[in-house]
Write a protein that binds this DNA or RNA. Structure first.
Lengths: 242, 242
DNA sequence: TCAATGCTTCGGTTACGATCGAAGTATGAA
DNA sequence: TTCATACTTCGATCGTAACCGAAGCATTGA
């Protein structure tokens, strides 16, 4: 009872919806500013500021001043592990947040996950890239193959340019609506940007859902055909442990 | 943000101190009644009742009616794993609950953990029993040896009687103040009861700390001498993985 | 049938914390 | 210097949920 580590304290830290949203927004390891996190949490910056200082005091976050910005990150990867394990548990209990209303199907189909494509289409894209041999998957780690580099360059992605950034090129990101992995990292971001640039799709207002044009959808589906049966093994491999 | 399982919901469930206390009280796998859990949480039965129904609705607990009692247990061992992982995390962040004030040293020395002896003396007792060959330890599982049965019977413990109960005889229980294991199970309970019966010690009011008489303390320390060097290996074994 | 026990439900109080407007501090740019 | 941006702190409001007393229901035992 009054014994043991104080699970109530960190439970309470995670238990506030705004804080939980900010934490999940940080789960891909990027550093975000207080203002960005306020948006992620759906609150004003003042409120976010108090939340962030609580999270920092609780050892979940660290901050790094850079100019007039303050970049927040998860304190270390044990925090990420903790959040992941809670997510996994919550998923088994069916504690998925269902936004009722007409927006939900669109969100499930295609949406922005930070800066890359998620949802049904996001999972399909990664599956297709793996099936085509463009990306090799070992456990959760993804790697762009030579064939993939050629292929993506041919459709207008500046792969060499992406390589020069500090951010990892390929990253597997768990898709909670699909319960499968999709492609994150700078490559995932570049691909989504290219869809916007080509006019295949656009964001809807302030929502995170992505609306494809009929022409864009046709092209997308042609570019990333459904993975066929014999590729299931590779795909499952990429999703191992999730 | 609005994506993924609702970690805030289960965070909030664990985030209330009373609920957290009730959950940790259930972590040894036993089923406890609502009244017992109310005591564990330090609240009235009415309040406990509402907490318990919330925890049940959240999928953390299940209840089983038996006569006019309602026995609550953790829904399954994934809940235990979850709580353990949070505890582990909380411990690394230094989120140990320190009761300030004079009571704390007494609590660390000897206290009740559900129904058995915990704290420094609890750890010492188990170490000593292992060193004496009364209990054999393989990983976290403890077993009473024949020599141990003879020994304990000679000091007035009705081992055969304890064997007839459904509850496991020996159980290893992690001691958070010592970060080491102590003896739980029906044998742990019986030993503590015998200390009370013999007048060696008594509970203090409503606190969980146990006060030894000077005579009782002398006898206890003589009965359970400090484990010597060469037994460290066995003891560490018993504490493996904690 | 009646009393006792274990637990839940109801009603009302209270306290805590999430929230935001407004003001204050720090950094960078003009 | 002045202005703009990024963020924090202060102060006040407000809503929710934790809490308990009292009453109600269910089970057991006499």
């Amino acid at each position: 009872m009054k014994e043991g580590p104080d699970i109530a304290q960190i439970g309470a830290l995670i238990g506030d919806p705004a804080r939980a949203n900010m934490l999940t927004a940080l789960m891909d390891g990027r550093a975000l500013t207080a203002t960005e996190l306020a948006a992620a949490g759906g609150i004003t910056v003042q409120t976010a500021s108090t939340h962030l200082s609580k999270l920092e005091a609780g050892g979940l976050l660290t901050q790094r001043k850079q100019g007039r910005h303050r970049y927040f990150t998860l304190a270390d990867d044990s925090v990420g592990k903790l959040l992941e394990s809670i997510m996994g548990f919550a998923a088994t209990r069916g504690h998925l947040r269902h936004r009722p209303g007409p927006k939900e199907p669109a969100l499930r189909k295609a949406r922005i996950c930070y800066d890359h494509l998620a949802g049904d289409y996001g999972v399909r894209m990664l599956d297709s890239l793996i099936a085509a041999g463009a990306i090799s998957a070992v456990d959760e780690s993804l790697r762009l193959t030579e064939r993939g580099e050629t292929h993506l360059t041919s459709i207008g992605i500046d792969v060499t340019g992406l390589r020069s950034t500090r951010r990892p090129l390929c990253r597997s990101c768990l898709d909670w609506s699909e319960r499968r992995a999709h492609l994150a990292g700078s490559l995932g971001k570049a691909l989504l940007s290219s869809f916007f640039d080509k006019g295949w799709a656009r964001r809807i207002d302030d929502s995170r859902s992505i609306l494809f044009t009929s022409e864009g959808e046709r092209r997308f589906l042609a570019l990333f055909p459904l993975a066929t049966r014999q590729t299931d093994k590779a795909r499952d491999h990429a999703n191992a442990g999730m």
